[in-house]
């Protein structure tokens, strides 16, 4: 059973390496955003499998923190590329979008 968990962990690590290859090569920006997000998700899964392998529950806390941070970082990156700034509040976003729409017309 332990060996099976170990094989799953190895598989997770290989999946992480695959995402790394896309992150290195990724021709467009959104390939890289998707690859980084997916890499974070795979790290969360890797940590969970690892905690099952070693039999320590501490790693589950780290995995939860990762899931949160991964989400925040992805939102920050996407916000950065949509608005070219990290300082715009959520309330201003829709206003800004409407203004951009007007300009396009």
């Amino acid at each position: 059973m332990t060996f099976l968990t170990f094989l799953v962990a190895i598989g997770m690590a290989v999946a992480m390496a695959t995402m790394l290859a896309r992150l290195f090569a990724g021709p467009t920006l959104y390939d890289r955003v998707l690859a980084a997000n997916s890499f974070g998700t795979k790290t969360v899964l890797f940590l969970l499998v690892f905690s099952a392998l070693v039999g320590r529950q501490d790693a589950i806390d780290i995995a939860l923190l990762y899931a949160l941070i991964n989400f925040v970082a992805t939102i920050a990156i996407l916000k950065f590329f949509r608005y070219r700034s990290l300082e715009i509040a959520l309330a201003q976003m829709s206003l800004r979008k409407a203004l951009d729409g007007e300009y396009e017309k």
Binding site: L20, L23, F24, G26, L29, R32, V33, A36, F39, G40, T43, F46, L47, F50, I62, Y66, A73, I77
Partner: peptide
């Protein structure tokens, strides 16, 4: 931009 993403990935790997 890729370098910034990769530094984040580096931290994730380090923490793992």
């Amino acid at each position: 931009f890729a370098v910034v993403m990769l530094t984040g990935v580096y931290s994730l790997l380090c923490a793992a």
